[in-house]
Design a protein around this nucleic acid. Structure first.
Lengths: 236, 236
DNA sequence: ACCGCCGGTGTACGCCGTACACCTTTACGG
DNA sequence: CCGTAAAGGTGTACGGCGTACACCGGCGGT
């Protein structure tokens, strides 16, 4: 028989399948569990096979970034520049939140990929279309920083100390006491959720609110500067 | 002779010497060249010796962060909250700029060290001393994000494409042309330095200016919200 | 005189990324 | 129809990493 009885022939790999599998694996097992070997195993292939489709691991990560960037909604034509940019950035945020590893990978990339450049180019274009000067737009992009991607560096990646979901509440309260003695301002701030829930530990912050708060503060600032015809030459 | 003729006995290691050597090595050779092995070699010691002084590499990096945080100037008592915070943050920036790897390490740390907590606590205290509510301060800290450390995620870590210090200007100009065709807005922005130097490629941005621009935009925003008695409950 | 501990050693394990030579399958031009 | 060359997958191997674990010399305290 010329046909192999084996379950047909594996459909051959290609760059796209590799990238998608990498994204899926990182989603499921975490970015630190993504190695060329583990990815190859996932694809039922020997590690070196991957190198026929991506040059090296850096390029793999770059490709994964572009996959995620491709999930960001295209700009919506209507609306003023401010809310158009706001919407787009929040869309980027949703994409990044779907892949919790993505922000860390974007941070660590050392040279921009075409997809990244496309996105940045288009955001800049939205500022310009809104009438902001190239000068102001330049500084606005810097001011946004990683916020154009919809994320901010978390100051407290998790609650400090051991995970909150362990140990008896006795010890937990004691720990909070220690914290309050040593870092009174931090504790006060962490507990500062205006009214409602008075759970002992502030159950974390509303990240979405925090993000929009800062984003709006910046966008409003840009708008104000734009209206008053600001140029960077003013501060000689 | 009971005395060894060898150059006496090596003064024994301790945690502090290890951390300082690690910082020095990272400064000199880059953070990616810092391994337990290379650090041990630097200290004329076998790799495993380090583990008598730091639990593992994560803790080594945490310790290095605390060394850098220790370089940040203490708060200066005089002056209003805004300029006091401004000064402190810019001092943090100077410390981080002295150790170019530090921002990346701070970003990647997963749980805060005592030194980090001290610093954040004191910044928060400065907001509170200025009269800002715990609520507003909370959001202000989030809005600052990594900017309390004096750095911002760079959008273009270097100029895109190959390093600028190579190849003939002919090819470089052609590359710029391609860029301008594909990413017109980016190119316009990059070249938008108000008057002076008209070098072909914008020779990079004035990072210090960009940082202060964004920092002041945020601080001014906080001040405005403070003056008008803003609380987060407003946006129900 | 002894013991215990502290700091430094040596060996080894299991990961990692990837260079390189090899083999199979497929596509195509003569 | 065949020969060949490319494309895609394999196997082996190397050097590097973090670190577990057993060990050992010398010093201080009893």
């Amino acid at each position: 028989m010329t046909q192999q009885t084996e379950p047909a022939r594996r459909t051959p790999l290609n760059r796209d399948r590799v990238l998608r599998a990498a994204v899926a694996l990182a989603d499921r097992a975490g970015i630190e569990a993504l190695s060329m070997r583990s990815l190859a195993h996932e694809l039922d292939v020997v590690p070196m096979a991957l190198y026929k489709h991506v040059a090296n691991k850096k390029q793999l990560l770059d490709g994964m970034v572009d996959v995620i960037v491709g999930e960001i909604d295209p700009p919506a034509g209507d609306a003023d520049w401010k809310s158009a940019i706001r919407r787009r950035v929040l869309s980027a945020r949703r994409a990044l939140l779907r892949h919790s590893w993505a922000s860390r990978v974007i941070e660590s990339r050392t040279s921009p990929t075409p997809g990244v450049l496309d996105y940045l180019n288009s955001i800049i274009g939205m500022f310009r279309a809104g009438g902001l000067s190239a000068d102001l737009t330049h500084h606005a992009m810097h001011a946004l920083g990683s916020r154009v991607w919809g994320f901010t560096q978390e100051l407290f990646p998790a609650s400090p100390g051991p995970a909150p979901a362990d140990a008896d509440p006795q010890a937990l309260a004691a720990l909070l006491g220690e914290m309050a003695a040593r870092y009174p301002h931090i504790v006060e701030i962490v507990l500062a959720r205006p009214h409602d829930g008075e759970s002992v530990v502030g159950q974390g912050c509303d990240d979405q609110f925090e993000f929009e708060f800062a984003l709006d503060l910046l966008l409003d600032g840009f708008e104000r500067l734009h209206r008053q015809g600001w140029t960077s030459a003013e501060r000689f």
